[in-house]
Design a protein around this nucleic acid. Structure first.
Lengths: 177, 177
DNA sequence: GGCTAACGGTTGATGCAGAAACTAGACTGT
DNA sequence: ACAGTCTAGTTTCTGCATCAACCGTTAGCC
């Protein structure tokens, strides 16, 4: 969110005058914030209500199904999700307690641990995915032209570069790299 | 996030076959998710480190400065922010304890309460806004053409409509309606 | 008037996210 | 071999978000 332009009146920032957002930019920005918050909340609620999964659960499961042997080192998973490691640690612990994943110790590096997708975890995401995708299609992609999708991607990836965050990798076959 | 296409193999959804995302759509979607998460986290960290404000604090302050008399009923504020009312209640309580806002009881409706921006609150947001806007300009708007901004806005507002959430209102002078 | 429903807001319980401190194993150079 | 440093992962603490239940008030309605 941004400040009302009025705030600037009577106020001078000596170092470098602030370049506020134009009206159109403010509208875009507020819309972005709203979509961001509302869509995330909606996905969370739907997943929770229909499948007993949080969005975080879902993200972990997706990243595990993405990978050939459905098993990842903690640090690899953390890298893909871009999460705090403490968050991942707890998330995996909770999911393991529910039987969605399994922890397995790493033989060649005794500090390390693997996270394996369990059959129950696979079942859970297979049950959740169709509705989830349907929501995303309905609110976004079914209403976008291919050109719009391409434009969006370009803009988003630019933002990620400027944030100095690496873009999520997706291989040509649709699986994560 | 989405499922790997492979999951569909050998699996038939009887009710209505799932229409998964195309490759391009997946890339767009993952980018969207990444921007969403990373930019939000970044804004939060920056605000916290430089100004001791959370993004939630900032959002409340913006909505109060936006309005002529810098005071809103709780339910109006909640409507603008689209927050759970319990969240707003606690947020305002915390901010009042820090002196950023002030609660004032409502005379014509004894259930109600006003939230007033305090001078300290105004000072806080005036201090925080320039850096915040600078970040947003840097990662987004300075790199976008006016046409791209317009296109984004159109797409976002479409999403909001399909989510059946009302779009945030911004008046012609840049202030919230 | 009196009954009911809806509204505005708070509270309690629970679970999750982030920062920092911590443990233990692995790597490096000498 | 061993001191210093780095990496993988966990834990602790604290604050925030959500859900549901709740309370007092107002409004609708006959």
């Amino acid at each position: 969110m941004l400040l009302n332009q009025q705030l600037r009146i009577g106020k001078v920032y000596l170092m470098d005058e602030v370049k506020w957002l134009s009206n159109d930019e403010q509208v875009a920005w507020r819309s972005w914030l709203a979509v961001n918050a509302q869509l995330t909340a909606r996905m969370n609620r739907d997943l929770q209500a229909k499948n007993g999964l949080s969005l975080a659960d879902y993200d972990v499961l997706v990243n595990l199904t993405d990978v050939p042997d459905r098993s990842l080192r903690m640090y690899e998973l953390g890298d893909k999700l871009q999460w705090e490691k403490s968050r991942l640690s707890r998330q995996v612990m909770r999911m393991a307690a529910r039987g969605l994943v399994e922890r397995r110790e790493c033989l060649d590096d005794r500090r390390g641990a693997y996270v394996d997708l369990t059959p129950a975890g696979l079942e859970a995401i297979e049950a959740a995915a169709p509705e989830h995708v349907k929501l995303i299609r309905r609110v976004m992609f079914d209403a976008f032209t291919p050109e719009e999708v391409a434009a969006l991607t370009k803009l988003y990836q630019g933002v990620l570069e400027r944030l100095e965050v690496k873009a999520p990798e997706v291989a040509a076959d649709g699986s994560a790299a």
